[in-house]
């Protein structure tokens, strides 16, 4: 189990300018779990660019979700759960940020409290005690029944990755036959929202060559 990420707030105060990360933080060799949200243009190959970056540079992906979030502007949101030292996480964010179709990269773990949810569908096959145990277990964890036959149930559960992990582990001896999970979607708490029209003040242009 990775150590809990220390509150970033004290470090944030030291963040005087872009790219400035306290040296002590970068030299911390502990591994932390981070949830990153990346808004990208929904174009062919964009997911391959992101996953290729992770595999090509040896970064870890714990889960990845992707879906269009703005049909009109054709913007998709990729949520990546990854882990690494602070130095590696900073590197991942910088590497993602320089991909051409990426609008914005946010580190939900560093930027303050956030909410993380995933949905899981679990099929349990069995009769008798196993079946009744499974029902009780589902009830205890707040999983709902979305389909049932005489020999099977499909449970649905929405929760954090850890909650679902716990539920799945307990379900194993109760006839668990199949699991399908979405991976984590995440969003920051409070009234702050990610704007995909970046507020960067650069002087970009598509001008003619000199």
């Amino acid at each position: 189990m990775p150590p809990k990420n220390p509150a970033a707030s004290s470090d944030q105060a030291a963040n005087l300018y872009e790219g400035s990360v306290p040296v002590a933080r970068l030299k911390d060799s502990k591994i932390y779990r981070h949830v990153l949200s990346v808004l990208v243009d929904n174009e062919a190959g964009v997911l391959a660019r992101v996953t290729g970056l992770f595999s090509g540079r040896g970064y870890n992906i714990e889960s990845l979700t992707v879906s269009e979030v703005d049909k009109e502007k054709q913007v998709s949101r990729i949520n990546v759960v990854t882990s690494g030292t602070h130095q590696v996480i900073e590197q991942i964010k910088a590497q993602l940020g320089r991909l051409v179709p990426v609008h914005v990269v946010r580190d939900l773990t560093d930027d303050g409290p956030s909410i993380e949810r995933e949905l899981a569908l679990m099929k349990v096959v069995g009769i008798g005690k196993k079946r009744s145990d499974a029902l009780r277990w589902a009830d205890k964890h707040g999983a709902s029944i979305v389909e049932s036959t005489a020999k099977s149930f499909v449970f649905q559960m929405i929760g954090t990755t850890a909650e679902i992990n716990d539920f799945v582990v307990g379900l194993k001896p109760m006839g668990l036959a199949e699991v399908s999970r979405t991976g984590a979607a995440a969003i920051a708490c409070g009234d702050k929202a990610i704007d995909h029209a970046s507020d960067d003040d650069g002087e970009a242009d598509i001008k003619l060559s000199e």
């Binding site: 051409v100 179709p101 970046s198 960067d200 650069g202 970009a204 242009d205 598509i206």
Partner: peptide, 24 residues
């Protein structure tokens, strides 16, 4: 034709920073 003009059009996603932070 390529977008151009006095106030150059900003690219929708790719706008690398060229002017560094004064503080830095």
């Amino acid at each position: 034709t390529a977008p151009r003009g006095i106030r150059r059009k900003k690219h929708k996603t790719y706008n690398p920073r060229t002017v560094p932070s004064d503080k830095a």
